[in-house]
């Protein structure tokens, strides 16, 4: 199989307006991925499936990832002139910046005909609100049907063009998206004999902390 850079270049030549970025994977697995812009994603997916050299006819895995907002602290060294006339003082200035979070969907593609893979493609939403949309790839690979419903259920990404987008695992009346990192579980813990960590914090709200023997 051609390398991911070659695939990216071919895609850029074929779809001039699309933004396709190579996301490198620093781990030992070195499975790099292509970040697709949402508006061209389905056309690109069709191309990946039908291209004679790639024939990625099998979408094995589709999943979501939640990246919450995070605070980035940037330190900048600023030279402040000394009012006494000496040499400039170097002062570190810290600025905190809120990097907006996003939701991501990841697809692992293989070719059953040519027996190669994986090609990993990913798409990102603009923010983490409740009505964020990404194009559905179910019309391209039917195997995304249940998996995209699961992502919708657990992460809250609304897939545009999905034929039957309902919750897959939780009940229909359920309002939350439990796999998001900021999801708060309903508090129905009971007392545990040796609570620790988050369980202990929750137990404290129900019962006084157990007295530990000296």
């Amino acid at each position: 199989m051609e390398s991911l850079e070659q695939i990216r270049d071919r895609l850029l030549a074929r779809f001039p307006g699309a933004s396709i970025t190579l996301v490198t994977n620093p781990g030992p697995a070195a499975e790099h991925s292509l970040l697709l812009s949402a508006e061209h994603a389905r056309k690109i997916a069709m191309f990946l499936r039908d291209d004679a050299a790639l024939q990625l006819d099998y979408c094995s895995n589709a999943t979501g990832i939640d990246w919450p907002d995070k605070e980035v602290v940037e330190t900048k060294k600023v030279a402040v002139p000394d009012p006494a006339g000496g040499p400039d003082k170097v002062v570190e200035e810290k600025t905190t910046r809120l990097e907006p979070g996003y939701l991501e969907s990841v697809y692992h593609l293989y070719s059953m005909a040519l027996r190669h893979g994986p090609v990993v493609i990913r798409m990102r939403t603009v923010n983490r609100s409740n009505r964020v949309t990404l194009p559905s790839l179910t019309p391209v690979w039917r195997s995304c049907d249940f998996q995209e419903r699961e992502i919708y259920d657990l992460y809250g990404i609304v897939f545009d063009g999905h034929p039957d987008l309902r919750r897959l695992l939780m009940w229909d009346e359920f309002k939350d998206h439990p796999m998001r990192k900021d999801y708060v579980e309903p508090d129905d813990f009971e007392w545990e004999p040796t609570p620790h960590g988050a369980v202990l914090d929750r137990a404290k709200t129900h019962y006084p902390a157990p007295e530990v023997k000296p």
Partner: peptide, 28 residues
């Protein structure tokens, strides 16, 4: 019944109530 965040009610109080906390107050 299915609620928006959890079952409603979360338990049947006639069948089950949370157990009393066990405190190990004894010395030794």
């Amino acid at each position: 019944t299915f609620g928006e965040h959890d079952l409603e009610p979360t338990r049947n109080p006639e069948v089950w109530t949370p157990p009393a906390p066990i405190t190990r107050s004894g010395k030794g």
